[in-house]
Design a protein around this nucleic acid. Structure first.
Lengths: 337, 337
DNA sequence: AGTATAAACCAAAACGTTTTGGATGTCAAG
DNA sequence: CTTGACATCCAAAACGTTTTGGTTTATACT
């Protein structure tokens, strides 16, 4: 068995109380004793049992992150970067990270309930908010700390970070209009995802601001994968009067769109413009490179984690609601006509 | 505060012992009492405190996974897929997953030590083995359960999964030779990574089997990123007598190589062949699509997790050492000449 | 000498479980 | 009426900490 505080206490001939207090730098222990205790503890390789500590301190110093995964071969570049942001920030504040992967739905919610009721973590990080998000409802009912990436329709009396998607889309549409495009199509994200709404709003509004028509036939809805981007683009470009530019609501679908356009013998950037949203690393190296909107995922992960830790500590986070400004990355997929 | 076993006990007018035994289906409690206890527990939303359970049971039912991350904007498609395999398998056996992100080195090893000494997890999952891997040394010294993805040079008396990289490279080289290539270059991975060795071995051996020359000038060493793949390919193709095919030891570098070749005005697949290794999702959609070797990352993650859980349970895993057979995926980047 | 003050230490309680080793009551058999 | 056997229950210990509320001893001050 591992070495416990009792072993150390016996070794130095002091009580476990004194050992504990020495190691935690209380000032009611003699300096010499403290030195000796610290030395012996180090020699013996003593580390307090985190479990016993958690039980006694009534906190776990652990954050929960349940990743919504779609399908088994799940490989979303979003998550590894976000995870790095969360993990590094948590570690900096002495927090551990408990990660699980669940498809959205009942199983997912069960995981939340069990983790709450068994007090396994001190709080949760929520990503990819959905309409009427059941995770948020649940956590609020239980009065459990959490922080969110992605706006919601509810009263936001909880810490939240989001990108300004409307602005992002506005930048995209403005850019396309500058390039002379007048027939602009759109590939939307699944309706229940909150960001789908905001991006769509931004698109629609900006189009209207330019007094450009919004042909319903030019609007498709995909499931965020390349495959669906490709399929829908095939449809769009086969219309009698196809759009000259296609705005996809994420990079993966835009990349699928690139493929589709090329399969139809079109040169992207000249015959048709295609744009994405997210700026995943891949987008820099597509053919042609993809015009897109950059979201600083790593920083968002870090920020949302800081906010969660503040609320766990009982502080109201300095900023309760942050809207980050995205930037347009212009690349060859929307080159001047 | 959350509801404890004591609350349930008081509510049903039984001792906490009886409640505990009822919920755990011991047979020394009256069937009626059990029913009632279970019902009340459910109504009250009682879940045993996982921490108290862990303390008492002397196990955490938690696996540790410390991801070696290079640099802050870290986004390796390998990890999200692997993580999904690990996470889902762990959940199936009732294990949680504690994830951390550390750059290889001292900090990383510290994290292992602390987690071991504070008995935070029951075992570790190790990936991307390195030469003389200090993580393995450490875990063996402490006699701590772990399972590994990637072979090592030590006696393997621990569970281990790897792909047969030699075979993978053999398939690649055979394929290129069939296409008539005689001058084949190589972009190696960092020397301290074990898989770098095996892939290099496979390459070298197969070349020799075909009695083909191995010009030292055609061998470069990269750091697994696109950037280095691109840079090194520039160098390779600028040689007075450049190779006609370039074998990269992972997909990301191969993708960098594609870019470099195109920048030099070459048509990949016709003027020069380029191959990768891993078959990340991206590789299917490069221009041209990348010939590569498929590793079933998700399954590997699942398998290595099963093995770890077996060893934690004190069983010797059914198969202590698994070598998976990769398959060659031929795409246009190595089209017939 | 007596008393207040400070320094150094510690026993015991508490956190919420599971498990050990009975205790109690009932019923049937002798 | 006694004895066993069985069913049902439970008090207490243990897991390894931290914290509370002390006690003891030495020192300084009247």
């Amino acid at each position: 068995m591992a070495v416990t505080i009792k072993d150390v206490a016996e070794r130095v001939g002091r009580s476990i109380t004194t050992v504990s207090r020495a190691l935690n730098d209380y000032d009611d222990v003699n300096e010499k004793t403290r030195q000796r205790i610290k030395q012996v503890a180090a020699e013996m390789g003593y580390q307090p049992s985190s479990i016993a500590q958690q039980l006694r301190k009534r906190r776990t110093d652990t954050l929960g992150f349940i990743m919504p995964t779609y399908g088994p071969r799940f490989s979303d570049p979003f998550f590894s970067e976000f995870l790095a942001g969360v993990g590094n920030t948590a570690a900096k504040s002495g927090f551990d990270l408990l990660v699980a992967t669940r498809p959205p739905g009942e199983e997912e919610l069960d995981a939340y309930i069990r983790n709450i009721q068994s007090r396994r973590v001190d709080g949760f990080i929520i990503v990819r908010t959905r309409r009427n998000d059941p995770r948020i409802t649940l956590l609020q009912e239980h009065n459990y700390p959490f922080a969110v990436f992605g706006r919601t329709e509810k009263h936001n009396n909880f810490p939240l970070v989001d990108e300004n998607s409307e602005l992002g889309m506005q930048l995209v549409v403005n850019h396309l209009v500058e390039q002379g495009h007048k027939r602009i199509g759109y590939i939307a994200a699944p309706e229940d995802l909150m960001f789908a709404q905001y991006r769509w709003q931004g698109f629609k509004t900006t189009l209207a601001a330019h007094k450009l028509p919004l042909n319903p036939a030019w609007v498709m809805r995909g499931d965020l994968t390349q495959r669906s981007g490709k399929r829908l683009t095939h449809q769009l470009l086969s219309l009698p009067e196809p759009p000259t530019a296609i705005v996809a609501s994420n990079d993966l679908m835009a990349i699928g769109a690139l493929t589709a356009a090329q399969e139809l013998g079109l040169t992207v950037g000249r015959d048709v413009a295609i744009t994405g949203f997210d700026d995943i690393p891949w987008s820099e190296n597509t053919h042609p490179p993809l015009t897109t909107v950059r979201q600083p995922i790593y920083q968002i992960g870090a920020l949302v984690t800081e906010m969660l830790i503040s609320t766990i500590h009982g502080e109201t986070p300095a900023k309760g609601r942050v809207l980050l400004q995205p930037s347009l990355i212009v690349r060859a997929s929307s080159a001047p006509r």
